[in-house]
Design a protein around this nucleic acid. Structure first.
Length: 532
RNA sequence: GGGCCCGUAGCUCAGUUGGAUAGAGCAACAGAUUUCUAAUCUGUCGGUCGGAGGUUCGAAUCCUCUCGGGCCCGCCA
């Protein structure tokens, strides 16, 4: 919709001011008292044109109106402040109901991505302990971004990088073995209660030569199992060890060496990351000859690009933000397109029960796991709450609120709108009233009806901008707003009534609403219930 | 000490990449159902956008400084 209007505006500008070069036309959604859409283009054009702003604005508005051959607009107002406000015609809006119902599941989707390949890596938690609510947040954000990109025409793969080698894994194994033999866990090992549980479960296999692999599979499967409860599924689990086995780490290091970007000091091999924007140089090969995690990660990201992805997106927790410059430095060193490598940093989650903070310290072992949260409040509320807030804001997650079947709980509020619609159709069936093939949509002239259709048609723009910004929380906001507008409509406009024609028209509107609500919830992997 | 994120209504947060008189939800208060689900709706109350400078026709948004909170600063991953 925005693109259509922008095109109309651009065409009109070229017509009146052929000599002017102008920036992309921005179409915004103003407060409803101004109109359905607006543009500030006259404000931005005025300095170049030397004319008076009101005159330019008015000229442009008049031309736009003339050029609107599709009769989208009923009004196009120039304001004194330099805006041009658009009002869509009722006829145009009413027709959108039909289009939405025709597109059904496809409504909102687009092909902007043109099938470009995107790899999104997220969670990638160490297999050394249970997932916590923070992991849940990165998981949901990553999964939602992937869904948004799919919906906008990208070929997306979800990947989980498994840190299956190195010091942490060794410590894990030592800790489990110690517990299995009723010894104290070694210094710097893992001491949580889950270690004992794992030890107990794997006790009969602890003597096997491949015990470490058994242990790793166990931990990884546990993560998979929990993530599946959240409806997060990965296309690939990429093992760090495979990079070593295939010689990819060595090869990557050779490439960096060949560029003269390494040096030796204290028996270690260093990467001159400082020359490429990092605040210090980093070790690639340790004194003892072992490569670092960083070295493997370089090889991993090189491999991602070599696998043919146009764009890489990583979702990391804020505790890894300091790692960003060195990895970017490494990609630069290898001549990879850093501008196609994005890292989304997700801030932490603070859990509450009402006003009481829930402690989640690893040390005390009293950590609430992600699985416990899902069990307590359910996958829908978990996903919804974890998506609700922008990734770079801290999230205060109130378990009490998320659990409540009350209007103050936004998940229920949105789902209830969908259930209500389903209920209307159920009641319609009882009364022998169903959706007709055609209806006179011009009967939909109530302000609440207009407002509802007006909101429905935003879905494609909302998905597109949320995808481009990698900000799934916008979809939650949209869902809440749409639900609010629907509930308002529901109170003001009775759907099933004596008036058969109006009933037929409203059923179509309500059906379109159902489609949009369901599509949004589906995008967020939250269920759209028919009854509550 | 340095880096990243945050600071907007009593609380939790939006704010479309610099535009109009800064918006929601919750809480509080006052109302609404002979009706398709009251898990709902309507209205009222509520703001020096942490603070100070600066850039601009225009700043919550950009720059500098400053205060407060979170996270990080390893030859761990």
């Amino acid at each position: 919709m925005k693109a259509k209007l922008a095109e109309l505006v651009s065409r009109s500008i070229r017509e009146i001011y052929p000599q002017v070069t102008f920036p992309d036309v921005q179409i915004s959604i103003p407060q409803s008292r101004y109109g359905d859409f607006a543009t500030n283009i006259a404000l931005r054009l005025a300095p170049q044109l030397e004319g008076e702003l009101p005159k330019i604005t008015q000229e442009l508005a008049a031309t736009i109106m003339q050029n609107d051959e599709g009769r989208m607009l009923i009004d196009c107002q120039a304001t004194r402040t330099g805006f041009i406000n658009f009002k869509l015609s009722d006829k145009f809006l009413q027709h959108q109901i039909t289009l939405i119902r025709e597109k059904d599941r496809h409504f909102g989707r687009s092909d902007q991505g043109k099938g470009k390949k995107v790899l999104i890596e997220f969670v990638s938690a160490n297999p050394t302990g249970p997932l916590h609510i923070g992991h849940g947040r990165w998981a949901v954000i990553g999964d939602d971004i992937a869904a948004l990109l799919s919906a906008t025409g990208f070929a997306v793969e979800r990947e989980y990088y498994v840190n299956d080698i190195g010091t942490q894994v060794e410590k894990l194994e030592e800790s489990v073995r110690a517990r299995a033999e009723s010894r104290e866990v070694p210094e710097g090992g893992y001491g949580g209660a889950y270690i004992s549980e794992v030890a107990e479960k794997l006790l009969d296999r602890i003597g096997r030569s491949n015990f470490r692999e058994i242990l790793l599979s166990h931990m990884l499967n546990d993560h998979k199992r929990v993530l599946e409860k959240l409806k997060v599924n990965f296309d690939n689990y990429y093992r760090e060890s495979s990079l070593h086995g295939s010689g990819k780490v060595k090869a990557a290091l050779e490439e960096i060496k060949a560029k003269g970007l390494t040096f030796e000091e204290d028996g270690a091999l260093w990467f001159k990351s400082q020359e490429l924007g990092d605040d210090k140089n980093r070790v690639l090969v340790r004194k003892g000859g072992e490569t670092t995690y960083f070295a493997a990660d370089i090889a991993y990201h090189l491999d991602k690009f070599r696998r043919g992805f146009d764009r890489l997106i990583n979702v990391w927790g804020t505790d890894h933000h300091g790692y960003v410059p060195r990895l970017r430095a490494a990609l630069k060193a290898l001549g990879l397109p850093v501008e196609h490598f994005e890292i989304i940093i997700g801030q932490l989650v603070a859990l509450f029960r009402g006003a009481e903070p829930v402690r989640m310290s690893k040390r005390t072992g009293e950590m609430i796991t992600l699985e416990e949260v899902i069990e307590e409040i359910g996958p829908d509320a978990t996903r919804f709450f974890l998506t609700m807030v922008s990734a770079n804001s801290h999230l205060e997650f109130d378990l009490e609120l998320a659990k409540q079947a009350a209007p103050s709980n936004p998940v229920y509020y949105v789902q209830y709108a969908h259930a209500r619609i389903s209920s209307i159709f159920r009641e319609g069936v009882e009364r022998g009233v169903g959706i007709e093939r055609s209806a006179d949509l011009s009967l939909l002239i109530h302000p609440a009806e207009r407002e509802l259709v007006r909101k429905l048609i935003d879905l494609p723009d909302e998905i597109l901008s949320a995808a481009q910004a990698r900000e799934p929380h916008r979809m939650v906001i949209y869902a809440k707003e749409l639900a609010a507008i629907f509930h308002n409509f529901y109170h003001k406009c009775r759907v099933l009534s004596e008036d058969e024609k109006l009933t037929a028209a409203r059923l179509q509107l309500v059906d379109a609403t159902r489609i949009v609500l369901r599509n949004v919830l589906e995008l967020l992997s939250v269920t759209a219930p028919e009854r509550m």
